[in-house]
Amino acid sequence: MTSVAATIDSLTPALVERARSGDRAAFEALISGRVVRLMRLATSILLHDADAGDAVQDSCVRAWVELPRLRDPAQFDAWLWRIVINACRTTLRRRHRTAVREIAMDHATGSVDTPGPGPGMSENISEVEVVRLSFARLDPDRRAILILHHVEGRSVAEIAAVLGIPEGTAKWRLHAARQELGRALKVERR
C-alpha cells in the first residue's frame, strides 16, 4: 500500500495555481487522477454508487467554484477530500430527512435494519463479506476514517489534515473506529 502523499503528482501545485486562475484544463487534469479515489471514499461512506457519484460531482464543482478562496494550494488534496466527506454527510442528512424508512417487521422483536443477513446467515459466507457487513453497521464518520487509513493508506497526520483535527484526536478516533468495527464483527458473527 503506497502513501497517498507519495502518489500525488508533482505537478499538482502548478496545476492548482493554474486552476485557481480559471484554467479549466488544469482543473480537469487535477480531478481526472482523483475521481476514482474520491468515488471509492464516497461509495464507502454512502454505500450507494449513484449517491456517491452525486456527492463527488457536487464536491468537485464546488471545489472549482471555490478554488480561488483556497489559501494554501499545497492543501488542495486535504481540502478536496474534506469537501467530499462533508458532501457525503450532507447527502446522508438529506436522505435521513426526506426518505421514509421502511421498517421490517422484525423490528418489533428488537432487531435492527442495518444491511446484513443477521441470524441464520449462510455458514459459508466469507470473512471478507462479514467485515463488509460489519462496516455497514458503523456510523458514517467511522467509515470515513477507516477508509482514509486502511484503503487510502493515509497516515494519521494526513487524516488529521483532511479532517481538520489535531493528530491526537485523529489517532484516538481511528482507534475508536477500529474498536467499533471489532464490536460490529462480533455482532455479525452471532
Binding site: I31, V36, R40, D49, Q57, C60, L146, H150, V151, L181
Partner: peptide
Amino acid sequence: LIEQALGREPDSAVAAQTFDRI
C-alpha cells in the same frame, strides 16, 4: 482483512459518468 473487505473499486461506469458530469 479490512483492506481486502473495504478496498473495493467503485463502479467504473459510474466514475466515468461522474467525471463527465463534472
